[in-house]
């Protein structure tokens, strides 16, 4: 259940962050902002990919509802 939640939260967060980042970068084109927002975005994308795989691996070994 926790993993399912993580999966949904991280997907939503990506969209939110992408939208935020687009606004920030357009408003302030300093490199520090680009670096910071890219780092956070990459971290969340990685978390999303990781949690999706963990969720599938977990599901693959649920032979009953779990």
């Amino acid at each position: 259940m926790f993993l399912m939640l993580i999966r949904k939260i991280s997907r939503t967060m990506i969209f939110m962050l992408a939208a935020r980042e687009a606004r920030i970068v357009r408003r302030d084109k300093k490199y520090i902002w680009r670096i910071l927002t890219s780092a956070v975005r990459d971290m969340i994308l990685q978390t999303n990919y990781f949690s999706r795989n963990i969720y599938n691996a977990y599901k693959s070994r649920c032979v009953r509802e779990c």
């Binding site: 795989n53 599938n56 691996a57 599901k59 693959s60 649920c62 032979v63 009953r64 509802e65 779990c66």
Partner: peptide
């Protein structure tokens, strides 16, 4: 599913 999962095992790449 999910009962059939006991007959199908998957090893992930990582």
């Amino acid at each position: 599913l999910p009962e059939a999962r006991r007959f199908i095992g998957i090893l992930f790449q990582d």
